[in-house]
Nucleic acid binder design. Structure first.
Lengths: 219, 219
DNA sequence: CTAGGTTGATTACGCCGTAAACATGAATAG
DNA sequence: CTATTCATGTTTACGGCGTAATCAACCTAG
């Protein structure tokens, strides 16, 4: 996959693929240059620096959400709409677990843009959609806030669980066994703690959030 | 505040203070050394590297939660207990907004340790407390999961809003005015979006989470 | 064909984390 | 009391980082 000319979106996409494969810490201007068969400084013709690159990666992914199949046709209720956005975002987090922390964490362009729906375009889409379903101004904004909080909390933790990321390594001994001698409850509940019901927990929490939004809505 | 001898907890505390003041990106071994009036390499006698330092900072803060006044005496109901933990954690996030992303984001020591209550000690305290109030094994674990998700979502976004962090700067023009011409809903709701009701939203969401936990509990 | 602008390559600078060797002073053993 | 050990901080050095500045090659317009 060799190109004649370098191009901003191609750089950003390569960076995303690289981080997906190797992790954020490995992303380096020089290494990204190598991947694109170009010298590191060539990248600066198209992006203004590392910070700009990270921002562009986040923007690319968030904007890409619009193209998700779940988003391409209109929802028939606001509940269905929220479910579609939530599930599309969840797919994004699962698809790019090493980038999602960036999406959740990077300071947004304006303080009222809340991750992960952190582009003006998305806020517009979100608020206007809810209003099309009859939400008042206040209710739409309140829903935006609680919905984004929900997504960040649920998805950031889920994404983190998908990235081994080579933790401490510590000793060469059993890498998962800490003492737990003095922690009887944790020891007893260890199996339950390990069980993964992410999908169901996500759906349940979303259902409850929807219920919460419904009942706190102006009539 | 000059000491004769360097000491691990002193290093960690200085690092926390430094990041609170200057931001994570400014934290450097050399600079931290300067603060402590010591050469950078001296730090390596007490910590094994930058990664270890960051981990120690997180641990220090999370363990410090136990000393919060809200945690020093027993709660009389599990609802009150959750409220105390939530509010203590909230104080932590507000007190160290530039470190909280680390607390939420850094890969935990074990996959079943969920930020921000990411120490075995905390999980033990949390689960055993709920069980003292009659929670079954499953319910306690389920509450741990939904509660941590809630905290991360609510507090990470709140902490982010407290860190100006010197965003793009972009042009010298009005740093907060984007066009918004093509975003009529956002434009119209701009004031509502800017309004800050974090405390109330936090309390409301917590109340609803508690209600959710109550009704999904085994009888 | 030529002039100018765009794109990538080269070179260089200062900062980073940290490995390794060294210095020093306090604790300990004889 | 002296000699030795060991813990602690210093010095030096290395490779990698982001990126400013300069340069060379190429496309494109006239």
């Amino acid at each position: 996959m060799v190109q004649q000319r370098l191009d901003r979106t191609q750089i950003v996409e390569s960076a995303i693929a690289f981080v997906d494969a190797c992790g954020l810490g490995e992303l380096t201007m020089r290494r990204l240059g190598t991947v694109l068969e170009v010298e590191a400084m060539a990248l600066y013709r198209h992006i203004s620096g590392r910070a700009d690159l990270l921002e562009a990666m986040v923007d690319e992914l968030i904007d890409g959400l619009f193209d998700d199949e779940l988003m391409t046709e209109d929802a028939h209720s606001w509940e269905e709409y929220l479910q579609r956005v939530a599930n599309a975002t969840r797919k994004l987090a699962i698809g790019h677990p090493r980038i999602f922390p960036l999406i959740a964490t990077q300071p947004p362009a304006a303080p009222w843009l809340r991750p992960p729906l952190r582009s003006v375009r998305w806020v517009e889409e979100f608020l206007s959609s809810l209003q099309r379903f009859g939400f008042s101004d206040r209710d739409a904004v309140a829903a935006y806030k609680s919905f984004t909080s929900f997504l960040v909390g649920a998805l950031l933790l889920h994404a983190a669980s998908l990235t081994p990321e080579a933790i401490g390594d510590e000793d060469a001994e059993a890498s998962s066994e800490t003492d737990l001698g003095q922690y009887p409850t944790v020891q007893r509940l260890q199996d339950l703690l390990r069980e993964d019901h992410t999908q169901r927990e996500f759906d349940d929490a979303l259902d409850d959030l929807i219920e919460r939004i419904r009942t706190s809505r102006d009539k």
